[in-house]
Design a protein around this nucleic acid. Sequence first.
DNA 1: CCAATGACGACTT
DNA 2: GAAGTCGCCATTG
Length: 111
Amino acid sequence: MEHKDYFQKVFDVTCMIPEERVTNYGAIADFLALGSARMVGWALNKCSLSEIKVPAHRVLNRKGELSGRNAFPTPTLMQERLEAEGIEVVDNTVINFKDLFWHPENILKNG
DNA sequence: CCAATGACGACTT
DNA sequence: GAAGTCGCCATTG
């Protein structure tokens, strides 16, 4: 299971996402140089199998839609998680997505 | 091995 | 600017 590290990378970055902030698959893929956002989603889909708690609900697609809501125990859990953090969600889409958008590279900027 | 799929994204028309 | 098309790469059939 060498790809386990692959998950770890994605999980690690996902866990770095601050509250009140969200990101998209492409940003993580770009930061980890995975080459494809699909791989990020693929890894996050497995996050439920991981022992690590991952705020996967903070990861959305480029349009800010909760594309992965169906992968949660309940399709509404993802939205509830976001709303619990003060993020407004309507029609499976995060409001002010571009304003809440956060890029993993910010980790390096802030140290 | 070939074909199809997926929590996507960028490019082209 | 919306809709359509291709690329991405690992998994599954």
